[in-house]
Amino acid sequence: MRFIPLVPAALVLTFTAACSQAQSDKTTDSPSNARSDMPKGGDRRKDKNAAAEIVGLSKVGSLKGKVPESSGLAPAPEGGHYFSFGDDGNSPTLYEISGTGQLIRTLNVPATNTDWESLSRDGSGNYYIGDCGNNESTRRDLKIFKFRPDSPQSVGTIAFSYPDQREFPPKKKQRNFDCEASLWHDGQVWLFTKDRGQDRTSNVYTVPDQPGTYTAKKITSLAIPGQVTDAALRADGHRLVLLGRGELFILDGNSWAEILKATPRQVSLAGAGQTEGAVFKNANTLLISTEQGGLFEYTLP
């Protein structure tokens, strides 16, 4: 794994906490996971069998007809429940589901859904919706919405821009300003970009968790041989999972600084579908959703 320090070595990072593939990406996939992973037409049986053969992966439910194009997951206030949502083209709605995909309730959020891609929660019960999908790197209106489920009509807006973006859009090989994964920690929302260029580098930025307008701070870059679609950090802070399309990248360390320097272990989930959401159910198990409506549990190695 390549680690590119962009801040003084004395800075120690700590971390905790949880951006879907937008419409145009349904025809442009990462090289490591081509369209053969997508359940389409005559390939449905093949894909179902392939998913069943992945060690540690089991299908536990379906979101079809309940959550349109599930693009992320985060814990709901009630234990054993989770929030999910749809990306661009869908309503600004959160869907509370059980661990087996049963729809519990819907929560309408008074905010725009230009391209919702991530959802995370802080220790005080605030949620952060990442309206930061940016497939073509053309957006100048990137936002994170801050709200509480017990007071959903009060929504704060964290507007941000990237410090290193000069063109809208940049050349295709330099389009690394799409974010589908974010996490909250210690007063900051952390953003992991999805490289649509050629380097397969996930850039890591932070913005404050308070409403306002900010220039994001670039922290580092991670060499990830895939396109990041979600992120989840274990409760003890020692394991970070970056979800890609049909794959996982696992990074371990005793601190957040160590995690950022760790060599990722790559796990294939080929056949599961367009994997877009991931959240820890417990220390060793992930709940994973797909845009096609699949809901899986995965026991981490």
Rank of each mutant, 00 (worst) to 15 (best):
P8A: 06
A9W: 08
A9H: 10
V12E: 15
T14Y: 05
T16A: 08
A17C: 10
A17H: 10
S20P: 09
Q21N: 15
S24R: 11
S30E: 12
P39T: 02
G41F: 08
G42I: 11
R45T: 12
N49E: 13
G56Q: 03
L57Y: 01
L57P: 01
K59W: 00
V60S: 00
L63Q: 02
L63I: 02
G65K: 04
E69D: 05
S70W: 00
S71K: 00
G80D: 04
G80C: 04
Y82C: 02
F85T: 03
G86H: 03
D88H: 13
D88E: 15
D88P: 09
D88F: 11
S91Q: 13
P92I: 10
P92T: 10
Y95N: 06
Q102S: 15
L103G: 09
N108S: 15
N108H: 12
V109I: 15
A111P: 05
T112I: 12
N113Y: 01
N113R: 01
S118G: 15
G123Q: 14
S124T: 13
N126H: 14
N126D: 14
Y127I: 02
Y128R: 03
D131R: 02
G133P: 03
N134K: 00
N135K: 07
E136D: 12
S137T: 00
D141V: 06
K143A: 11
I144A: 05
K146V: 08
R148I: 07
R148Q: 14
D150M: 02
S154P: 03
S154T: 13
A159L: 01
P163V: 05
E167L: 13
P169M: 07
P169E: 03
P170Q: 14
Q174M: 11
Q174Y: 13
F177C: 08
C179G: 09
C179E: 11
S182W: 06
L183K: 05
L183Y: 06
H185K: 12
Q188L: 12
L191Q: 10
R196N: 14
G197S: 04
Q198M: 12
D199V: 08
V204A: 06
T206Q: 12
Q210A: 15
T213K: 13
Y214W: 01
T215K: 04
T215G: 02
A216Q: 01
K218D: 02
S221A: 13
L222F: 00
A223L: 01
D236W: 01
R239A: 09
L240R: 06
R245T: 14
R245A: 13
L248T: 09
F249W: 13
L251P: 05
L251W: 06
D252N: 13
G253C: 07
I259D: 06
T263F: 08
P264A: 06
P264N: 03
S268K: 11
G271L: 07
G273H: 05
Q274E: 14
T275D: 10
T275L: 07
F280P: 04
K281H: 12
T285D: 11
I288D: 12
S289M: 14
E291R: 10
Q292N: 15
G294L: 13
F296N: 09
E297F: 10
E297H: 15
E297P: 08
E297Y: 11
Y298G: 08
T299R: 14
